[in-house]
């Protein structure tokens, strides 16, 4: 820094002198000449601003695409770990064994202690998470505060029955291969909206609507695309008459 400062100091008096000397002569000259001289004197070359432009541009690209998404989310560990694979082996109805539909057609979502207690009234095996689950939650009658990766904002109405029962969609189409996981991934919560990162999607490419899998992002656009494809209509459900109120009740 000191070197740059020194250089600047060295140059400055000369420039100042030249400017002072030229001022009376140039007073009658048009302004554009004066500014032209000034540019010549100040510039270390035409490439430098371009270089700094590129530096700024690239820096922000890197920050915006790779660092910013990391800052936007806080990472929260699930209260205890869960092995989907292990449980899938034990049940015979697949996902719906635990993530079931109630009698009235509503979707129960994340299982509660009532579904687990049958097998977990006592500790199974020696896994520390299992021990914590039974001692901390089951024994005390406290529900596990699971963090839901797929919970849509409160302004969105979503019916599982309509999608799973009527449209015969597979769970994985929206939720991904959760059933194949042996451990729960870290939950990432958006600082601003307070919702899960899974709604927006993990990959930065999602910004460009370049999803590799259907479940990678569940924004309104994704609902619309799927509805257009499935219904064969050119307009999405959202743009149909009263379409907004299908999901935003």
């Amino acid at each position: 820094m000191s070197t740059t400062d020194d250089n600047t100091n060295d140059v400055s008096p000369e420039e100042a002198e030249e400017t002072t000397e030229e001022t009376p002569e140039e007073s009658s000259q048009p302004d554009y000449d004066s500014s032209g001289d000034e540019e010549e004197c100040h510039c270390s070359g035409p490439g430098l601003p371009i270089l700094f432009f590129i530096i700024g541009f690239v820096a922000m690209l890197i920050f915006g695409w790779f660092i910013f998404p990391e800052f936007l989310y806080c990472k929260i560990k699930q209260p205890i770990d869960f092995n989907h694979v292990l449980h899938m082996e034990e049940v015979d109805k697949g996902c719906e064994s635990c993530h079931f539909f109630r009698e009235d057609g509503t979707f129960a979502g994340v299982p509660k202690n009532a579904q687990c207690i049958k097998c977990h009234a006592e500790v199974q095996g020696d896994d520390p998470d299992e021990l914590e689950f039974v001692e901390k939650y089951i024994s005390n009658g406290v529900e596990v505060p699971w963090l839901s990766y797929s919970r849509q904002p409160d302004c969105v109405f979503f019916s599982h029955a309509a999608h799973v029962k009527l449209a015969n969609m597979d769970c994985a189409e929206c939720h991904g291969p959760m059933g194949e996981s042996t451990s729960l991934k870290v939950y990432e919560k958006n600082w601003l909206s307070q919702y899960s990162r899974d709604i927006w999607g993990k990959s930065v490419l999602n910004m460009l609507n370049m999803k590799q899998h259907t479940w990678e992002r569940m924004k309104m656009y994704d609902c619309a695309v799927c509805h257009m494809e499935k219904t064969g209509r050119e307009t999405s459900v959202q743009t149909a008459k009263d379409g907004c109120f299908v999901c935003h009740k």
Partner: peptide, 8 residues
């Protein structure tokens, strides 16, 4: 200009 073409 860079920010404009990032998700920020």
């Amino acid at each position: 200009a860079g920010v404009a073409v990032t998700p920020i």
